[in-house]
Simulated scan of single mutants.
Amino acid sequence: MTAYDFALLILRVALGLTMAAHGYNKFFGGGRIPGTAGWFESIGMKPGVFHARVAATTEMAAGIGLAVGLLTPVPAAGFVALMLVAAWTVHRANGFFIVKEGWEYNLILAVAAIAIAGLGAGKLSLDYAFFSGTALWDWVQGWRGLAVAVALGLVGGIGQLAIFYRPPAKTDA
């Protein structure tokens, strides 16, 4: 094992389990799906129950997929789509910095996932175990992996916003 492969493992697991925890929390924490659905409705993601389930499922699947390094560009695309939607609907108006609830954290999660898709999941991954030496190997890492993560993520996030996002009406205070 090299330091490179071990470092990728640490990054994948930390990033992936962080995202999976967000999905788990939507399913089982606090307000669960009904509470999350109400919040989604309030920010303009309608129907709220649909989006709560989609977000929770995508967060868990993308997080676990990245953590184990399985078809790495696909869960990385999930990160991109999730973080694009979150940044646009919740954090955009607050500016960049997270201390003011800006989109800084969303950017870091998406970019880290894209970087992993480009680098590949490393030798300590299911990608390596299943695809090393096969025709799929070039699609789960390198330029193709990076392109898949970015393209699928942007299409997913922009598509979701275009189809479902209806910003709440502004009220004068």
Rank of each mutant, 00 (worst) to 15 (best):
K170Q: 15
F97T: 15
G102V: 13
A149E: 04
G30L: 13
L124M: 15
A93S: 11
R92E: 10
A173H: 10
T171S: 14
I43L: 03
L152W: 01
G118N: 08
I114D: 08
T171L: 15
A113L: 07
V111A: 11
L107A: 10
S132E: 12
A93G: 07
G65F: 01
I43Q: 01
G159P: 03
W88N: 12
F130Q: 09
A110C: 05
P75I: 06
I10Y: 08
T134S: 13
A81M: 01
V80I: 09
V148F: 05
A62R: 07
V148S: 02
E59L: 11
G118Y: 04
G156L: 01
T72S: 13
A173E: 12
A37F: 02
A21S: 15
A61C: 08
W137S: 04
W143Q: 14
L154A: 04
T134M: 08
R144L: 12
G145V: 04
I43S: 00
L124S: 04
P47W: 05
G120E: 02
D5F: 06
I33C: 07
A77C: 08
L71M: 15
R53A: 10
L161P: 00
A93C: 05
L82K: 03
Q141K: 15
D5H: 08
G153R: 00
A62L: 10
F97P: 05
A77M: 04
A86P: 00
W139M: 13
V13S: 09
F131V: 01
F96K: 13
G31T: 08
V80Y: 00
G23W: 01
L70V: 15
A55L: 04
M1R: 14
K123M: 10
L84E: 02
P73Y: 12
L119W: 10
D127V: 08
L84P: 03
H51Q: 12
Y165H: 15
G38A: 14
K100S: 14
H22Q: 09
H51W: 14
V155C: 07
H91L: 06
T89P: 03
A169V: 12
E101V: 08
M45Q: 02
T36Y: 05
V85E: 05
T36C: 06
G30K: 15
H51F: 13
G157W: 01
A76E: 05
L66D: 09
A86T: 06
L70Q: 13
A151L: 15
V54Q: 08
L82G: 02
W88P: 01
I158P: 00
Y4W: 10
P73D: 11
A86N: 03
W143S: 14
L82N: 02
G133I: 11
I114P: 00
L124T: 06
N106Q: 08
S125E: 05
G48N: 02
I33K: 02
E59I: 07
N106A: 09
G69N: 08
